[in-house]
Design a protein around this nucleic acid. Structure first.
Lengths: 143, 143
DNA sequence: TCCATTTAGATGCATTTGCATGTAATAGGC
DNA sequence: GCCTATTACATGCAAATGCATCTAAATGGA
């Protein structure tokens, strides 16, 4: 294994530390407002985008980059909180269709301003074009 | 709260999803090689850099962006695994000085090639200059 | 000096995660 | 149709995390 170039290592360190700080900041802002964390937000958003059709747990799993058991239990908690419903799937008797409830939509809507403020504060030192460049470069990392 | 610009949201989404995938990839590579995860690597590296002087737990906590109890328990596990030692601190009877052991250094050294390969694969689609730009932009995000 | 405040670190308890495995249903070869 | 492999999801158990709180020592007045 040949040593990665210094620029590569620098990019890795910056990616690891800065993303962690940014995510921690958003989590903290939500918690300080007495709201659930990012995982709940992300799940609610995906389910809201899916609309009436709903989502199968395995579809949500792909979108959220969660392990299978993580998705299963997250949905269980969301359902117990009344934020999503769980219906048997007509096309596949093994599966379910999860749909967001009105309460779920309402909660996501209350979370967004807090989340948005955190996002804004993370990028406030970057110009618009710099944010675009950052997004483009991040889009090219693998694996 | 005024809505963040689309470029800002795109940068946020890219940061959250790509960093997660990259970190997951490195964790998976280490695990596949039967090695401990990134948290252990990071702690061992900081302690190795600190050398004979060692580090106080609160110093490690700052460097690793961990909560206080997280650091306390991580060090406890590292010590039980024989990778670090814990000595009373001469200047402050409340505190300790943690130092890496030979075993700890050896483990970190065995982890590095695996970790380095994962890092390389994450950035393989980026040119050297692009990696530099990415590092610079990430360095400017807050808060 | 004495007391209140702050700082270093540990820890009990509840929640969450990770891992392995279990159950049930679909899909694919033959 | 039948048997095997695969897919969808759940779950028991151990380990890790988050939260609040505790102890002990240092610090900073008055």
């Amino acid at each position: 294994m040949t040593e990665p170039a210094p620029d590569i290592v620098a990019a890795w360190v910056a990616l690891a530390t800065r993303s962690r700080r940014a995510l921690d900041h958003a989590e903290a802002a939500l918690k300080a407002a007495g709201l659930p964390g990012l995982a709940w937000y992300d799940a609610l958003l995906e389910l809201e985008k899916a609309g009436e059709a709903g989502l199968r747990p395995f579809e949500l799993q792909d979108r959220l980059l969660l392990p299978q058991y993580g998705t299963s239990r997250l949905l269980d908690r969301l359902a117990r909180a009344g934020l999503v419903t769980c219906a048997p799937c007509p096309e596949d008797a093994r599966g379910q269709v999860m749909r967001i409830t009105g309460e779920g939509r309402a909660l996501r809507q209350r979370m967004w301003p807090v989340y948005a403020a955190a996002i804004t504060s993370v990028f406030e030192r970057l110009g618009r074009d710099e944010a675009g460049t950052l997004a483009r470069l991040l889009g090219r990392i693998g694996p």
